[in-house]
Design a protein around this nucleic acid. Sequence first.
DNA 1: ATGATAATAGACATTGTGTTTATTATTACA
DNA 2: TGTAATAATAAACACAATGTCTATTATCAT
Lengths: 193, 193
Amino acid sequence: MERKKEDRRVRITKQAIRESLVELMGRQPISKISVKMICEAADINRSTFYAHYKDQYALLHAVQGEVIGEVKAQIFSARFFGASGGAMDVLVRILEYGCENAALVKVLLSENGDASFQSELMQLAHEKFLAELEGERSLPPRTLQYLNEFAVGGLLSIMRRWLETDCADEPEMIADLMMKLLVSGTQGLYSAK
Amino acid sequence: MERKKEDRRVRITKQAIRESLVELMGRQPISKISVKMICEAADINRSTFYAHYKDQYALLHAVQGEVIGEVKAQIFSARFFGASGGAMDVLVRILEYGCENAALVKVLLSENGDASFQSELMQLAHEKFLAELEGERSLPPRTLQYLNEFAVGGLLSIMRRWLETDCADEPEMIADLMMKLLVSGTQGLYSAK
DNA sequence: ATGATAATAGACATTGTGTTTATTATTACA
DNA sequence: TGTAATAATAAACACAATGTCTATTATCAT
């Protein structure tokens, strides 16, 4: 909407800051990372950092926000249930995005990541589920909740593992596995194919 | 093994510190909690805190370690697969433990919690799976990995939700739901009952 | 009752934090 | 291409939490 307006210097600076954050978080949690460390790694002045972010946590939150924005766009781009293949397409696109930004997404989902990020992703998927399943009446509301949490938590865990293997398998294969596990559980792994 | 040796004063102090930590983490992430805050909430001297813990993160880690120890004991107390009802029993016991220590466990699994705690729980369940499924040859190793991650991530998410509803349903009911979802996926929710 | 030890109060140097100032370097664009 | 706008820098600053001491008081185990 209102992008492209940012000064080139700002873009370069922010990029350097973000890359340093990701690099540092590969080795330690955000709690052990100071603003000073980030600035030294990014080779920028500390005043410059404060011109853009309140502190290291605000920076992390901003970065997470961008990822969440991307996922949100994908997740709401199609119907998940009903339309055949809709869910697969969405999963494949999210997986592809994750793989393209592996260094970042991997660290956000890792043990050095932020629980609130994963919590926000849960919330996002939750909204999607509610939007699509609001007519669902055959299951008790609380069971629906559990199902939702189970699904998102499970899929997120698969994606985490997949990123840690450096996307060894094809996105389509992972999405297929996800769907099978969701719909038919472990039983789904033994039938056919 | 070598418990019961701790001075009464130490026990009281540590308990006060732990309770203050849990209370504070109900309202903010550990990154916003200083040693000073914990000491004021617990009404103890800051020097006393440093006599027991290196910093607030070491404290959190110690508390998490106790929970993990409890879960570990339960998880390895019986075979999960094979023996009928074994898995159910383990799940029920873990759920009961979580509910008895709801204030603590809830916060550790919340958005203010620590990703590394959840990561450690994953690792724990992973070891259990490997120990029991080492003979499994009908699925490719990587698929087995994904299945493991999916299962633990999904079950953990259900437990988180359950704790947030203040254990509204019975542990047996939750454990049953967990097993159904794991074995038969969403299909399992509609069949029989 | 007493020797051992935990908790306290207070002081201390250190470090990262945020903020500000003047100065330099880079950018957008007329 | 020249220039006004603005981003980045360097330096200084008060401030707050940190981590480590020491001397003193309170509590415990026996």
